[in-house]
């Protein structure tokens, strides 16, 4: 059987280094299979998060050969096997152990977002077109790869000021829900730090669900914030009404 070398980060929050493991490569094998092989045969305490192993739960995110990926969807035969395949934890989150990072910050950000609130007296009739329009945002599996690559978080660590692409996608899914009656524009501007995003589209590139995060979620939300807070006519109108 063919063999490959996996160069995997081993360590905790303080220190660590990569360690090489030789694994047999079966047809169709994915990187997560290789990590399971290492756990089962070579390093039983190798820490890896995973659940569905089918690209549906978003648990097994890591950086494979420098690229943020779901390891369950990264085929070994798509990677050059004449050199070691490096597998590192997501860089933007504090390390716990090996490939497992502390992603709890994301769950704290999510708490800030007011949930769906139906408009008063709404009739529960929706057209399929409206469902299709928001579907894209609602298929997010919370793998946090977009959070991991966003330079506002990765290079500048603005976790206190900036919610990150995942949560702009979530807000878009709520704001564009056909029956939702709440505006989250103020929240986007003041608490979620939408203005920090300078639309470099790194998030869109790594999304395993192929959500057009920048074009379809972030830019329309930026427009909403502009309409609500910076539009001269609206501003004038507000002034006149004293709000």
């Amino acid at each position: 059987m063919k063999q490959a070398t996996l160069r995997v980060f081993r360590g905790d929050s303080n220190s660590g280094q990569t360690v090489d493991y030789r694994v047999p490569v079966a047809p169709g094998m994915v990187v997560l299979d290789a990590l399971h092989y290492i756990q089962g045969h070579l390093a039983p305490d190798l820490a890896v998060r995973w659940n569905c192993k089918a690209g549906k739960c978003g648990s097994c995110s890591a950086e494979v050969n420098g690229r943020p990926r779901l390891t369950c969807k990264t085929r070994m035969d798509d990677l050059p096997q004449d050199q070691p395949i490096t597998v590192l934890p997501m860089k933007s989150f504090p390390r716990i152990k090996d490939l497992v990072t502390d992603v709890s910050w994301n769950y704290r950000v999510n708490r800030k977002i007011p949930p769906f609130q139906p408009r008063e007296g709404v009739e529960w009739k929706i057209s399929q077109l409206d469902v299709d329009r928001v579907q894209e945002f609602r298929k997010c599996i919370e793998c946090f790869l977009c959070q991991n690559v966003c330079h506002v978080l990765r290079e500048h660590d603005k976790k206190e000021q900036f919610a990150g692409p995942r949560f702009f996608v979530r807000v878009a899914g709520l704001e564009m829900h056909p029956l939702d009656g709440l505006s989250r524009a103020g929240l986007l501007k003041d608490q979620l730090g939408l203005g920090y995003c300078n639309i470099t589209k790194c998030c869109t590139e790594v999304c395993p669900e192929e959500i057009h995060i920048t074009d379809n979620a972030i830019i329309p939300l930026k427009e909403r914030v502009v309409d609500e807070f910076y539009d001269p006519l609206t501003k004038l109108f507000r002034k006149m009404r004293g709000v």
Partner: peptide, 20 residues
């Protein structure tokens, strides 16, 4: 199911706008 919809879940729809 209706309750889930009232909490914000979106399902595919029929022609008349009900849950498919």
């Amino acid at each position: 199911v209706r309750e889930l919809e009232q909490w914000g879940a979106l399902f595919d729809r029929t022609e008349s706008g009900d849950i498919l």
